[in-house]
Simulated scan of single mutants.
Amino acid sequence: MMNNHIEIFDTTLRDGEQSPGFSMNQEEKLQLAHQLERLQVDVIEAGFPIASDGDFETVREISKHITNSTVAALCRTRHKDIDRAAAAVEPAAKPRIHTFIATSDIHMKYKLKKTRDEVLDSAVDAVEHATQYCDDVEFSAEDASRSDPDFLYQIFEEVIKAGAKTINVPDTVGYAMPWEYGNLIKGIKENVPNIDQATLSVHCHNDLGVAVANSLMAIRNGADQVECTINGIGERAGNASLEEIVMAIATRDDDRETKVVTEELVPSSKLLSEITGHNVQPNKAIVGDNAFAHEAGIHQHGVLNNPMTYEIMTPQSVGLESNKIVLGKHSGRFALNKKLQKMGYELEKDELNRVYFKFTQVADEKKKVKESDILDLIIDTLSHQPADGDPKVAG
């Protein structure tokens, strides 16, 4: 039976911060953690405490302040790592220790230099050790999408027996295709006998541009938790984008829901951009500057009459005040007239035609026509001053 509620595990402060040029100091991470709690994500992965004293102190500070979301700390399967993670999240109202080890043959051979049996023993030992500190332990099989499924079934069964409450299936290098990843999740649901005793989580990277698609396919095949980041930031090409996953579920999936406050999506995106100094591309889904902007005349006509003609969600639902009608070379008379009316001008048909002709000439030369440009057009095109019965400025 599939879970109706999909847990959102945000790793912006851990995996996201590993993006080159996206590092954050303690004050910035704490500020973003508070925003993530306002967003009502289920889990905030606050950092990798063994990495440095600064990361340890930051995770510990976040743990002291966050009360509603679970605070997770990442660690390898070494006892020293686990002890450090446990100390970092100890003040948290809802602490989680998240331990991981690679399970793909290429990682075991060339990185770990361990056999499958050694990796299995290390995973089980790590989970058992972590459960001494808290009940909420998550285990990740790094590079799961390139691992032997039968080995995954075995290691997941054993770590659940050892006390893992969440098992995570990372597409660490963004290798999987949606149909493959969906089948992997389905296989885990069907072949791990005690899988119902744990939350099944997924963590997808975007190297081939399908991290969100993989995450959604995983949900359709039984995943209960999605690990993702604000603006999709993360290692290399990034992680699955939190805002895209949440709004895809809210807009298209009648069977599942998250508890995310979607009106906080744009504020979260903007805060991250402000902190890191990296803006999202204009055409970024949900939070990009053009996500609710319209320049083409046909689109503008439709949206101005009924936004649902070209918008499948409202801008207000993601935290924007309104959509944007952008005047440019593709705009038509209808949108221009609406803009003129907002500016206080009521033009006769022939006057509008004259202004529009001049407008198209300006728009051919400029990427975006500003309100000051339109005022210049009015002055240039209409040869007389506004008077009663003529084009005029309100007020």
Rank of each mutant, 00 (worst) to 15 (best):
I8L: 12
D10E: 14
G16Q: 10
E17N: 04
Q18E: 03
S23F: 08
E27K: 14
L32R: 00
R38N: 15
L39V: 06
L39T: 09
Q40I: 05
V41A: 11
E45Q: 12
S52T: 04
G54A: 15
D55F: 07
F56N: 06
T58D: 05
I66A: 04
A73Y: 08
C75Y: 09
T77I: 11
A87K: 12
A87N: 12
V89K: 04
R96I: 07
R96W: 01
F100G: 10
A102V: 05
D105F: 06
D105K: 15
M108P: 02
M108E: 05
Y110A: 11
E118C: 02
E118S: 06
L120Y: 06
L120N: 10
V124F: 01
A130T: 10
A130E: 06
C134D: 09
D136C: 06
E138L: 11
F139H: 10
S140T: 03
D143Q: 07
D143G: 04
S147N: 00
S147L: 04
D148G: 08
I155D: 00
V159I: 04
K161T: 07
G163Q: 06
N168C: 11
T172N: 09
M177D: 02
P178M: 01
P178W: 11
E180A: 11
G182K: 09
I188T: 12
K189I: 14
I195N: 06
D196K: 13
A198N: 06
H203Y: 03
H203M: 03
C204S: 07
G209D: 05
A211N: 03
A213L: 05
N214G: 03
N214I: 02
M217A: 14
I219A: 00
T229R: 02
N231A: 08
N231G: 08
E235N: 09
E235H: 12
A237F: 09
S241A: 15
E244T: 10
E244N: 06
I245M: 02
M247P: 13
M247T: 15
R256D: 04
K259V: 13
V261K: 14
T262N: 12
E263N: 07
V266T: 08
P267F: 08
L271K: 01
E274K: 13
G277W: 05
V280K: 03
N283H: 15
K284G: 03
I286V: 14
V287A: 11
D289C: 10
D289P: 03
A293N: 00
H301T: 15
H301V: 04
L304Y: 06
L304G: 08
P307L: 08
M308E: 15
Y310V: 07
E311I: 05
T314R: 15
T314E: 13
E321G: 00
N323T: 09
V326Q: 05
L327E: 02
G328E: 10
G332N: 07
Q341T: 13
K342M: 09
V355P: 04
Y356S: 12
F357C: 05
F359T: 01
A363K: 02
A363L: 11
K366T: 10
K366R: 14
K367P: 13
D373H: 12
L375R: 15
I379K: 14
I379G: 01
T381G: 03
T381N: 01
S383E: 14
A387W: 03
A387N: 09
D388G: 00
K392V: 07
G395M: 04
G395W: 03
G395V: 04
G395H: 12
